[in-house]
Design a protein around this nucleic acid. Structure first.
Length: 631
RNA sequence: GGGCUCGUGGCCCAGUACGGAUAAGGCAUUGGCCUUCGGAGCCAAGGAUCGUGGGUUCAAAUCCCACCGGGCCCA
């Protein structure tokens, strides 16, 4: 937005001045100085030039500055030099402020064309359908959903996929429980959700039984084998169970505002035998080679993936696990023909149909789910190696493969804090946190956290709105719970382990989602109380220091969106949203809007509040946090 | 054994891609602010060997090397 324009102008001034002095530079570094009195942007070009020319930076800076004096300026106001050689640029405040506010109150703020219609497949969630989502899975859902929203916001054509591993060990385990070990198919208490029942009871207990009575493990192998055969009775049964779990899991996801376009079942990939075609294709294109000797003799390998040769087909003819992942990745990017059929799975809360893959007859009218330009896969870092191999293989899929991008959006896992673990009665010894494990029963279910949060928010909302409609209070409480959990899971850098502490997660103050919602409501009420007004009738662009700081931050909106999109760092949006809320609240406490006597000041402040709300609303939307005029 | 990743006040965490001026927020602590627009808020105070050691540089939380500690992956 406007800050970008200011930056570009300053850069042009520098480039022109440098040109006139006859020096040369590769890049212009322009940064915000640590203190306002230095200006709005500072450059260190003089240091770079001074080094090459063996001159004093201060002299160079003075020289550049003297050239600039005569240049035409628009958003740039004063330029000055400070020792030891910084070139400082100040904005022309009235112009800058008016332009920023004008742009920010524009209703069409929400369209920044970065993607230019590029097709992107975002895969996230992908929880084994044998248990309820725990808090770690929720980090995946939130990251995936925010990325998806951000990409749509910046004009990408997005399909959201959810990969369902319905043929692996985890599903096999609960099927063993139901078919062989006598677990009743329905929860003992009808109030228990089916996914919780399968995960908390059946799955954990079956695994306990494997270690207590090792002979029971044979059932697992039997089930696994039968799951591969679509015509087996076990497969049919498992399908029924996993879909039932899936419905419950999706309730959790949709309750926090995450929706999908298609569920891709692993068993369909396996049973489609697509692997053999892909195998042939890879042989033809010499992506894989047959090893005649050495330790991999008799195997088909990929040379040099991940600096090592990777076995794809063992000497006994069995495919390694990569056999599912490669065809699936190739499908996403349109490197193989679409081998799925599609059926409607359900209509989601947002009214959109959720589809699922099938090998049986599908429906003719279905959206296109494959053939994306970019595949973004939200998967935790433990899969990093495998994902890297897949990406490198995709790049070797001929000319078409080179044009496609397979991106692993990795994030660190969620662990339980010491306090929370102790609270759950777990042994922690001297560790600061402990990793979750579905099999061992060490985890916190997402639904439970949401429920606790909702109760807390309900209390608080009720306290503040004693006479409000109970339905409204319920709705707001849920919305606050969702914002707290979403913000908490997105704000942190993806490369860091998120240590989940229940007490911490239940906070509604400080750097949290509810703080954004509170601030939004607070600002909304000003405009609501004032009623209609016509912006920009009389302005002079003169603002107090705090107001100016606030406007300047708002002017960075598009830069933030661009950075977050191109670097896939949606956590930056959370930080920025918090930042502008802090600035708004400072402004709010210090300067009256409705009670301001000066007409021009009052008018400008109203515009500022409106501009802020516009920016915040879009940010919150991307973060999946609802904005209400009252909470 | 090989590779990846993290380490910043009591606690959480931004800043590291592209080196720049007094290291930004939040929680907690202490003290203030409700007869003016919502106190889920604001203001102020204290609190930081930026894991350790070395190197490069006019300048290092940021780059390079070594080491220490946590975590992960592969073998």
């Amino acid at each position: 937005m406007v800050f970008e324009a200011f930056r570009e102008e300053a850069e042009q001034l520098i480039r022109e001045a440098v040109k006139q002095t006859g020096y040369s530079i590769e890049r212009v570094v322009l940064e915000e100085p640590p203190r306002q009195e230095y200006g709005d942007l500072s450059s260190t070009v003089a240091f770079d030039i001074a080094k090459k020319q063996k001159r004093k930076p201060l002299e160079v800076a003075e020289e550049l500055h003297s050239k600039m004096i005569s240049f035409k300026r628009n958003l740039v106001g004063d330029v000055n030099v400070t020792p030891p050689g910084y070139l400082n640029f100040k904005v022309n405040r009235p112009k800058f402020c008016n332009l920023t506010l004008q742009k920010s109150i524009d209703e069409k703020l929400g369209f920044i064309d970065i993607g230019k219609g590029k097709k992107v497949a975002v895969e996230h969630t992908s929880v084994n359908p044998n248990k309820a989502l725990h808090i770690g899975h929720l980090r995946n859902v939130v990251i995936g959903d925010v990325v998806q929203r951000l990409l749509k916001y910046t004009n990408h054509q997005v399909v959201v996929l959810n990969y369902i591993d319905d043929s692996g060990l985890q599903v096999a385990d609960i099927i063993v429980g139901f078919k062989f070990l006598g677990f009743p198919e329905d929860p003992p208490d009808p109030k228990i959700k089916f996914d919780h029942y399968c995960g908390d009871h059946v799955y954990v207990k079956v695994n306990q039984m494997y270690s207590d009575k090792p002979e029971t493990e044979k059932y697992r192998r039997i089930v696994l084998k039968e799951l591969e055969n679509h015509s087996s009775e076990t497969y049919e049964y498992a399908k029924k169970i996993t879909e039932r779990v899936l419905y419950e899991q999706l309730k959790t996801c949709t309750s926090i505002g995450a929706f999908y376009d298609c569920l891709n079942f692993e068993s369909d990939i396996v049973a489609s035998k697509i692997w053999q075609k892909v195998f042939q294709q890879m042989k033809d294109q010499k992506i894989i080679v047959y090893e005649e000797e050495g330790k991999n003799a008799g195997c088909w390998v990929i040379k040099g993936a991940d600096d090592q040769d990777k076995v794809l087909i063992r000497s006994d003819g069995t495919a390694t696990y990569i056999a599912k992942d490669i065809p699936y990745a190739a499908w996403k990017l349109g490197l193989v023909d679409d081998f799925f059929n599609y059926q409607k799975f359900m209509v989601q809360k947002n009214g959109k149909v959720l589809w699922k893959t099938t090998l049986s007859e599908g429906e003719k009218d279905h959206p296109i789910f494959n053939n994306a330009d970019v595949a973004i896969n939200v998967i935790d870092v433990r899969q990093g190696r495998l994902q890297k191999i897949i990406a490198s293989i995709i790049k070797r899929f001929g000319e078409k493969g080179k044009q496609k991008d397979y991106i692993h959006l990795g994030y660190e896992i969620v662990s339980l804090s010491k306090d929370t673990a102790i609270e759950m009665g777990l042994k922690v010894e001297d560790k600061d946190f402990i990793h979750m494990s579905g099999r061992a029963g060490i985890y916190i279910n997402a639904d439970d956290v949401l429920e606790k949060l909702e109760k807390l928010a309900l209390q608080e909302t009720l306290h503040r709105n004693p006479d409000a409609d109970p339905n409204w209070i319920q709705e707001i409480a849920m919305s606050i719970a969702v914002s707290a959990i979403r913000y908490g899971l997105i704000k942190q850098d993806f490369g860091k382990i998120l240590v989940f502490d229940l007490k911490e997660a239940l906070k509604l103050e400080g750097e949290t989602g509810p703080y954004l919602q509170y601030t939004y409501a607070r600002a909304s009420r000003i405009l609501e109380k004032h009623g209609e007004f016509t912006p920009m009738i009389e302005v002079n662009g003169i603002f107090e220091q705090e107001e100016y700081k606030f406007i300047k931050e708002l002017s960075k909106f598009t830069i933030i969106i661009k950075d977050a999109t191109t670097r896939l760092e949606p956590n930056k949006l959370a930080e920025y949203a918090h930042n502008i809320c802090l600035l708004f609240n400072t402004f709010y406490e210090k300067y009256p809007v409705l009670h301001e006597q000066d007409k021009i000041k009052k008018g400008q402040r109203l515009i500022l509040v409106k501009a802020f709300l516009n920016v915040l609303k879009d940010l919150m939307f991307i973060l999946g946090i609802e904005s209400h005029s009252r909470i």
